[in-house]
């Protein structure tokens, strides 16, 4: 298996500022629009996160969607959660990813099944995100989790999630340390609204040696922000942002302005920005412009 670094990895490791964005693969097998969105962005961003049954809502396999992106010349970051796969399925998918040339993997625990559209399903959680990272490390050392030797050794650029604004911060910190010890080379964070808390996070994480890519959430309206606060785990839009949107005559434009403002605010603290456009991928270029200029 090729151990070539991904372009995303090379850039991050060289200390350049990276921009990633999340594009949700379809519920269905028609990936044309998904690929079109990704291709439209590929010139201005470094990699695209392909979500894994995001929010526990069933969609096409992120492995298949990532492979399609790669074929179209777009660099994917494969998101892999522990919610829907046991350790056999996770290792199979990781080997499959490596065989298809996918190198960037974001190791996640996964949102609880009760948030999604298959509430009656059984959740797996055979592994957690730390154990998933350990598993990737083991595969990259040429053996599976039971110690059996692999035919061909995969190599990954492993990342992990972080929630810098979650309290108590010390409680989250020991898990972040375990993630880096288990091989996480970068963190992609939840949506950042408070640059003070982000600075606290960066100060704690920088000595660990992992890169930080700060999450920027694109909001469309005050109603959407309220919906997110109620229904999406790990995302919390502060009241003053909700109010700013509610007071605006053009909420979508204000949402974009807020995202651009936050992206500029966080830039000096971090190694990159991760844009979560929540279905409005067409305005990502404007956020990228705000970051670059």
């Amino acid at each position: 298996m090729t151990a070539l670094l991904s372009k995303f990895e090379q850039k991050l490791m060289a200390g350049s500022f990276v921009i990633t964005a999340e594009v949700c693969p379809p519920k269905g097998c028609d990936c044309a629009a998904f690929i079109r969105h990704a291709e439209a962005l590929s010139g201005m961003i470094d990699a695209i996160n392909v979500t894994d049954n995001q929010g526990a809502n069933m969609r096409i396999s992120p492995l298949a969607a990532s492979a399609l992106l790669l074929k179209s010349g777009v660099e994917p970051i494969l998101q892999l959660t522990c919610r829907d796969r046991n350790r056999l399925a996770i290792q199979s998918d990781l080997l499959g990813a490596a065989a298809l040339g996918i190198r960037n993997v974001l190791a996640l625990t996964g949102d609880h099944i009760s948030f999604g559209d298959h509430k009656e399903a059984k959740s797996v959680f055979d592994l957690d995100s730390v154990q998933l990272l350990e598993c990737m490390k083991s595969l990259a050392a040429g053996v599976d989790m039971s110690g059996k030797k692999l035919e061909g050794t995969p190599s990954f650029f492993a990342g992990a999630a972080a929630a810098p604004e979650a309290e108590p911060f010390e409680l989250t910190l020991f898990k972040l340390q375990k993630k880096v010890a288990a091989g996480a080379g970068f963190f992609q964070t939840q949506a950042i609204f408070n640059s003070g808390k982000l600075a606290r996070f960066c100060e704690a994480v920088a000595p660990l040696g992992a890169k930080t890519i700060a999450g920027i959430l694109l909001l469309k309206s005050a109603a959407m922000a309220k919906f997110i606060n109620k229904n999406i785990p790990g995302l919390k839009v502060p009241e003053e942002i909700v109010q700013e949107l509610a007071d605006s005559a053009d909420q979508a434009a204000t949402g974009l302005a807020i995202a651009c403002r936050l992206a500029r605010e966080v830039k000096p603290h971090v190694n990159g920005v991760h844009i979560m456009a929540m279905g409005r991928e067409e305005v990502i270029p404007e956020i990228v412009d705000a970051i670059n200029n």
């Binding site: 957690d128 989250t172 790990g234």
Partner: peptide, 20 residues
Amino acid sequence: CPKGLLNGPCGGMDEGRCEI
């Protein structure tokens, strides 16, 4: 923990509360 996590809280924890 509804996810039975052995290595610390998930990303849904905030203010010490559970995401679900």
